[in-house]
Design a protein around this nucleic acid. Structure first.
Lengths: 301, 301
DNA sequence: ACGTGGCATAGGGTTCTCCTGTGTCAATCG
DNA sequence: CGATTGACACAGGAGAACCCTATGCCACGT
């Protein structure tokens, strides 16, 4: 019941000769002979009739052939998949991506990578930074891009650049001058990433600042998606925070303006990977691309 | 690259634990551990993350899983097929059948066999006796029913019963009294089984008789199917030969009558099987059914 | 602090795989 | 008609794979 046995059987059936099959498989004729014989004796079934001049499948062999072919095809596909992962000639590079990754340069990164290695598919798993970090930490993902800070000890963290975070409102009166943390805590807030709550890195920075002054940040409304939050803000339901990349994108509704914090607040985007696990070539290469695309060392955004 | 490795991988991925997989597979945990490790080292790819408390698939493992499942499914199907052939609990009994087998008791034979062994499918390959004999001789088929005589030395031949062969015509004037071979040779004949020609057993008997008297049998028209021949006969294109089973069946056109030969001619139906090859239980059982259904030893009808 | 669950490692026995070399048999060719 | 060729079986031996038992390690829960 080994794959070699089924492969020998299939090739022998297709070529009509043990000798030809042996050449095809790169082994010797006695080996093919024995593989098939073992398959036959294992189940007490004759699969071939050994004519003196040619080989014929029995009815039992005819029944077995399609299943054997399925096994062999599966084995070839599996083998190809495993080799491709090592070869940059196929397969998939899987990469975790912070949820707002779309707003940065990532689409062009993928474009360039795909131009360089057209046979490698790219799978970007877009989650919150918290979840990306957890997935990389457990090994489900090899690497990813996240917003700092993150807690995990077992990750290699490479900061890439930072993006300033602004206070956003539809009321111009509240955008007159840079926001203090006290003003922020008093504001009617519409926050997003409800599922992750205060584990979200940007929120954690704000919570830490508030704590230093004995304050607490509390959201009036929490929604899941930033687009929903901005919609509410534009209709005057409250204020929120956005990073520059989003503020300058087309997602930003008309009539919503931004103002910086008094003490400037930054999202730091970093690449993370597991500390111990080896990286596949495709992932390694994708990480190199990501590093190379960053304009400089931690520019201000 | 063995099936055991893929099976261990699949079960471990599904159960989330090497230990559980080992119990599932009926082997020990170190064995599972080694099988997976070998699979990983074979291709230098990590498939699982061994968490202290839990096993997690890597991205590479996720890619491999469907292919591995295909291999395992194919192996299970193959194994079941091979066991079924030995067990009378499934699988297929393949049987060669003379072309006119339908006109005998065969349909009821199949019915009874199927009632006894509902899980065994029956595949009747209906060919001319010549071809059935050749297929059984080479081993492509395990057994079959044919009309004698056949040449092959390597066959075990068990005569079952015989069926008289008549001369058939649409012209009552030619059916007055039993036909002599000389009259037969002179008649305008419409014969069937064109493809096999004079290798057909019934034809061979007639040719042998003619040869004894220095005559030759020649067909005016040859067609492939007996139904076509009878159609021509009913329209007066010539005469032909039919066995009793056909003469009494609904296939026989109105207006076509039969008369025996002066020296009675019989088709002897026999069961044949290969001399050396072992028979599968299903085929052996089907042969027993066939023997049991014969009323007596070589009855005349 | 101790027991438990789960994976890794070590060492050994049995079987499988693959090789080389040789025998047999039938079909083909000079 | 004898020699050659082609294809499969058989024998014996080296190496690897598979599976086992026994044991160690580590994190978790009581």
């Amino acid at each position: 019941m080994s794959i070699g046995q089924y492969r020998a059987f299939v090739v022998a059936a297709e070529t009509g000769s043990f000798t030809a099959a042996a050449i095809d498989l790169g082994i010797t004729q006695p080996s093919v002979s024995e593989l098939v014989r073992r398959l036959e004796s294992e189940y007490q079934v004759q699969l071939f009739v050994r004519g003196p001049r040619r080989l014929t499948l029995t009815a039992a062999g005819e029944e077995l052939l399609p299943h054997a072919q399925q096994i062999v095809a599966g084995a070839e596909a599996a083998e190809r998949t495993l080799s491709d992962i090592q070869s940059l000639e196929g397969g998939v590079a899987t990469f975790g991506l912070l949820r707002n990754g779309d707003y940065y340069l990532l689409s062009s990164l993928i474009e360039r990578f795909h131009a360089e290695y057209p046979n490698v598919r790219v799978r970007l798993v877009g989650l919150n930074s918290v979840e990306v970090a957890a997935a990389v930490s457990t090994g489900e993902l090899e690497a990813g891009l996240v917003v700092l800070p993150i807690d995990d000890e077992d990750l290699v963290v490479t900061p890439l650049f930072r993006d300033e975070v602004f206070y956003a409102s539809a009321d111009p009166a509240r955008l007159q001058k840079p926001k203090t943390i006290a003003e922020f805590c008093a504001a009617p807030l519409v926050l997003y990433d409800a599922h992750y709550g205060w584990r979200d890195p940007t929120r954690r920075q704000l919570a830490a600042r508030a704590q230093l002054e004995g304050l607490r940040v509390e959201a009036r409304i929490e929604v899941e998606h930033i687009e929903a939050a901005l919609g509410l803000v534009s209709r005057g339901a409250g204020d929120t925070i956005v990073c520059r990349a989003i503020a300058e994108s087309s997602t930003m509704p008309e009539g919503v303006g931004v103002v910086p914090f008094e003490e400037p607040l930054y999202d730091t985007i970093a690449m993370i990977r597991g500390r111990s696990a080896g990286l596949s070539p495709a992932t390694r290469e994708l990480m190199r691309f990501a590093r190379d695309m960053i304009p400089g060392p931690l520019p201000q955004g």
